[in-house]
């Protein structure tokens, strides 16, 4: 396959693999039973990407289920040209994502920040290319490598949900909804009440019902974050719209992941108090489709719909109409766990 740049993506990736073997700056982590190694071809990536993950070890080197190279586009001329050629295909929407596949590779282009992910799932290898580590936005630093990790876990037959997840007394509550529906608000309220935190955005659900969070970060509207006096790990990343919090390890739950018990679909309202109501499985599937099916292009498949339906059939589902005081939410959710 000839590229606009005249080279081959496969060739370029091979060169990058060679580069990565000489690279000493790595970090290995465990997510949902998979060992993932990040290789930093620019030192600036490590401090900006690693804090979003828990169970990380910057020194450990072992056989990985997935190796991800993080590279600045300027480090490789051909990748730079590929990057430019790919970016010309955006229509200009800030959150547009394009997907393409060839020779077993999957390409995902992001507009904001401008970045490209090349995923070779057959060879357990992925490359994340961005202008420079400094180009990562606060939100990207909160959920780094989302496209690569979603594609990887989809292949491992996990259901990748656009969902928050919290745990209380050994039961996981999946909180699914589109952006702005209140997932993070509920997560923060539950965190504030001493519940365990798994995820506020990207959740992995195994067929066994076991739930894993990918990131130990939580994003709240900056003007909303003051009402949650929560102890965070490290500095917050304060943005104009949203602030990214790093959840401490004693709150963030990874070691013994619990089983999903209920599905909750939040609805923002102006009513005084939160109300939780049961909904039929069909409505639960429709709400899961709306929130998760097109969360990422790699999830567009019949299998994903089957898995979402299985989840909706298995778990009791509730519509949670949010009230004015989010701190009342945990008690309302706890009432359906009894």
């Amino acid at each position: 396959m000839s590229l606009v740049a005249g080279g081959s993506i496969v060739e370029n990736i091979r060169k990058l693999v060679e580069l990565s073997r000489r690279q000493t700056s790595t970090c290995t982590m465990s997510i949902a039973g998979a060992t993932i190694t990040l290789v930093f071809l620019d030192d600036g990536f490590q401090s900006r990407v690693v804090p979003a993950f828990s169970n990380t070890d910057v020194a450990l080197k072992s056989d990985s289920d997935l190796t991800v190279l993080l590279v600045s586009r300027r480090q490789n001329q051909q990748l730079d040209e590929i990057f430019d050629a790919g970016m010309q295909h955006f229509s200009g929407h800030p959150n547009e994502t394009l997907v393409s596949s060839s020779e077993g590779l999957q390409f995902v282009l992001q507009r904001s920040p401008e970045a490209m992910s090349i995923i070779d799932l057959a060879n357990h290898f992925a490359v994340f290319i961005i202008d420079s580590p400094h180009a990562l936005t606060n939100l990207e630093r909160g959920n780094p490598l989302k496209h690569i990790l979603s594609a990887f876990f989809c292949q491992r037959e996990f259901l990748v949900l656009h969902s928050a997840a919290v745990a209380h007394h050994g039961a996981t509550i999946l909180i699914a909804g589109s952006s702005g529906s209140g997932k993070s608000t509920i997560s923060a309220a539950c965190w504030r009440s001493g519940w365990s935190f798994l995820s506020d955005d990207t959740t992995l659900c195994a067929r066994t019902g076991t739930v894993y969070g990918v990131y130990r970060t939580l994003k709240l509207q900056t003007d909303q974050s003051a009402q949650f006096s929560i102890k965070t790990a490290g500095d917050k990343l304060i943005g104009e719209d949203k602030t990214v919090f790093f959840v401490p390890d004693d709150i963030s739950l990874r070691a013994s992941p619990p089983i999903a018990r209920v599905l909750v679909f939040p609805v923002v309202s102006r009513q005084s108090h939160p109300v939780i109501e049961t909904i039929p499985s069909g409505e639960a599937l429709r709400r899961l489709l709306a929130s998760s099916l097109f969360f990422l292009p790699v999830t567009k498949s019949t299998t994903t719909v089957n898995l979402l339906a299985e989840l909706a059939r298995t778990l009791p589902a509730y519509r949670l109409t949010l009230g004015r005081n989010p701190l009342e939410i945990p008690e309302v959710i706890a009432s359906v766990l009894q």
């Binding site: 396959m1 590229l3 606009v4 295909h89 959150n95 994502t97 997907v99 393409s100 596949s101 097109f294």
Partner: peptide, 19 residues
């Protein structure tokens, strides 16, 4: 979800290079 999908068009790589 139609609007979300419109933002995620799927491109095919051709032998001519980038799609």
């Amino acid at each position: 979800i139609e609007a979300l999908l419109a933002l995620d068009p799927v491109h095919d790589i051709s032998s001519a290079g980038w799609p």
